[in-house]
Amino acid sequence: MDMTNEAGDAPDALRLPSAAELLATTRHASAEPAEPVSADPDSDPLPCGRDPEAVLEHAAAGESDEHERSCPECQALLRDHSVLDQVTREWAELPVPVPDDLGTRVMRLVRAELHTGRLLPLGEPDEQLTLTETAAARTLRAAVDAEPGVQARSCRIRPYENRAGAAVPGPVTVRLSVGVPYGEPIHALADRLRERVRRAASERLGLEVAKVDVDVVGLEPAAGNREANR
């Protein structure tokens, strides 16, 4: 879009005319000065009784009836809307500086949105309270990591489901995958991890846990061996 004036000079700082200036221009050009109608298409009808949104729709489709073409209130609404439309079009054509990393930042947000996981109902059925699986899993993994020598790898939480398969408030099922220290009795360790998970779920989140499955997927060096290997 060519932003230069008649002399070929660029206008100072891409200044757009203000709404007041545009209104003054359109009122001066119109045959009949009218009060601006501050009707909001989402609210009350115009003083003439017409729905503002309907008037705008008819005008956009070229189907204004005789009343809308001659009524001062309808015409004032259309004039104000055309001013807004003109300003919007001019602003839309302005060059917009785009940060180089905008695409990367947007994709990071999209991935974060996709990674919320399941939604876990909290409290009572009529309370409409929900917690994302990601948030709950983070809390439970931290509780597991607090066990000496254990490293939480993944945590999936399945909500309680009714007979229709819909998630409803109730005891959840947790599946953990962990790395455990070599030489540690695994069954006893798994029981301790289950207790940690249940306690964290209850005290930190307010979730009841029906079952905790523990998958041991890695063996970590025992603490003493780690020191010796340094």
């Binding site: 939604l119 409409q128 929900t130 917690l131 994302t132 948030a135 983070r138 809390t139 930190r204």
Partner: peptide, 12 residues
């Protein structure tokens, strides 16, 4: 009025 609450982080 019905309010629906979604908690997206639990402050770990």
């Amino acid at each position: 009025v019905v309010v629906h609450v979604l908690v997206t982080d639990a402050g770990v």
